[in-house]
């Protein structure tokens, strides 16, 4: 699906995607890490439950919504990975009071 070009020079950043460690690269967005890990979908929609994943990667389409460090509905393409970040694909609408104020 996606492969990293050789000799990029970016350092490794380990994140947890759905509980499994994944070695992303510094400068990756969460969406890039997700795609690099072989996943195309970040969520199931709250409207019909249809699977969706990164589409525009420039913050416009809101299709790549994902849960980051427990905060749901974050745009995966607009947040850069950080060491130890927990990234969880999400299903439907979040419950009340799960975000970060």
């Amino acid at each position: 699906m996606f492969a990293r070009l050789p000799e990029t020079g970016a350092e490794a950043v380990v994140v947890a995607i759905d509980g499994a460690d994944f070695e992303a690269r510094a400068g990756d967005s969460v969406a890039a890490a997700l795609l690099a890990s072989g996943r195309l979908a970040s969520r199931a929609t709250p409207v019909s439950g249809a699977p969706r994943g990164p589409f525009c990667l420039m913050g416009v389409c809101f299709d790549c919504l994902i849960t980051i460090d427990g905060v749901p509905n974050q745009r995966a393409c607009m947040v850069e990975v950080a060491p130890g970040m927990r990234i969880d694909t999400q299903q439907g609408a979040p419950p009340l009071g799960t975000g970060a104020a």
Binding site: L96, T98, G99
Partner: peptide, 9 residues
């Protein structure tokens, strides 16, 4: 009224 709405978008 409902403080837990603080984090809702």
């Amino acid at each position: 009224v409902i403080p837990a709405l603080a984090s809702a978008q």
